[in-house]
C-alpha cells in the first residue's frame, strides 16, 4: 500500500448550521488520479475547500502527509472553479500564472526573474506561451482553464486539487488537460479532481470517491465504479455503460 497523501477524519462542514458534508472519513493514497463524483449540492467543492482550509469545518481533522494543512501548504496546489473569479480583472495570462509562485515567496516579497521564468515554463507546458501577454478576458474558456492549470503547475506541488477543470472547455483542451494530469500521476503526484462527466471516469481516472453529503464509497475505479454505487450516490437507478 502506498503512503497516505490526504487523510480526512470525521469531517463535518455546515453552512448556516445545515450540514453540507456529514462525518466524512477519507484516505487518499499517494500517486492516484482521483475523481470526486456526486450530484449537485453533494459537497464536492466544499470537501476540497475544507481540506485546503478555505472553509472552517465544525468538526473533524485533515492531514496532508500526516501534518495539518497550514504546515504543508508548499505541497499542495489548487485550481478553483473557473467561474469563481472575475475574468475582466485587469491582468495578463502570465501574471495569473505567476500568482502560483506567491505561496513560496511568502508575504511582502515580490516575484522576480526566477518566478517569471517558472511561470513561462508552465505556460509552455499547457501550450499557452503565445498568449502570455494577452488580457485574460480575451482568452476562450478552454484557454482560461489552461491558464489555471499552468498556475497550479508552477507551484510544483505534490498534491493537486482541481475543481471541475473540464467545465466549459472544448474537446481538444479536455484531452490536453487530462494528458497533463496523467503525466503528473506518472511523476508520482497525487491529483484530485471534482468531476461531472460520469462517462469519462473509467477512461481518465484510476481512483474514485462517491460523495453525497456523506461519503458513499472510495477506492480503485475498476473495483467500485459500478451501478450499485452510482445508484446509492445519485438516488435514482443509474446505469452507465462502461466500455471495456
Amino acid at each position: 500500500m502506498n503512503k497516505i497523501a490526504v487523510q480526512v477524519d470525521d469531517l463535518t462542514v455546515a453552512y448556516n448550521y445545515k450540514p453540507v458534508l456529514w462525518d466524512i472519513d477519507l484516505e487518499i493514497p499517494e500517486g492516484v488520479l482521483m475523481a470526486i463524483v456526486g450530484p449537485n449540492g453533494a459537497g464536492k467543492s466544499t470537501l476540497i475547500k475544507a481540506i485546503l482550509g478555505i472553509l472552517n469545518p465544525i468538526a473533524g481533522s485533515i492531514r496532508i502527509y500526516g501534518k495539518p494543512y497550514t504546515k504543508q501548504r508548499d505541497l499542495v496546489a489548487y485550481v478553483p472553479q473557473k467561474g469563481s473569479v472575475d475574468w475582466d480583472f485587469p491582468t495578463t495570462a502570465l501574471d495569473v500564472v505567476t500568482m502560483g509562485t506567491y505561496g513560496s515567496l511568502g508575504w511582502i516579497k515580490r516575484p522576480r526573474q526566477k518566478e517569471k521564468k517558472a511561470a513561462l515554463e508552465a505556460l509552455e507546458k499547457v501550450g499557452m506561451l503565445p498568449f502570455k501577454n494577452r488580457q485574460i478576458s480575451q482568452l476562450s474558456g478552454g484557454q482560461q482553464q489552461r491558464i489555471f492549470l499552468a498556475r497550479a503547475l508552477v507551484q510544483n506541488a505534490s498534491i493537486y486539487f482541481m475543481d471541475e477543470p473540464f467545465q466549459g472547455v472544448d474537446a481538444t483542451t479536455e484531452i490536453a488537460i487530462i494528458n497533463i494530469l496523467k503525466e503528473l500521476r506518472k511523476a508520482g503526484k497525487t491529483v484530485i479532481v471534482v468531476h461531472h462527466d460520469l462517462q469519462t471516469v473509467p477512461e481518465y481516472f484510476d481512483w474514485v470517491t462517491f460523495l453525497n453529503v456523506k461519503k458513499i464509497a472510495t477506492g480503485p475505479v475498476k473495483d467500485i465504479f459500478n451501478d450499485d454505487n452510482l445508484t446509492k450516490t445519485y438516488g435514482i437507478n443509474y446505469k452507465v455503460s462502461i466500455q471495456e
Binding site: 501548504r73 499542495v76 480583472f89 491582468t91 506567491y102 498556475r151
Partner: peptide, 22 residues
C-alpha cells in the same frame, strides 16, 4: 508597495489566496 501582490491575488482569486496562506 508592501502588499501589492497580496492585494492583487486576494482580489482576483480569494480561494487561491486562502490556499496559499494569504
Amino acid at each position: 508597495f508592501a502588499f501589492f501582490k497580496e492585494l492583487k491575488v486576494s482580489t482576483f482569486d480569494a480561494g487561491l489566496s486562502a490556499s496559499l496562506g494569504f
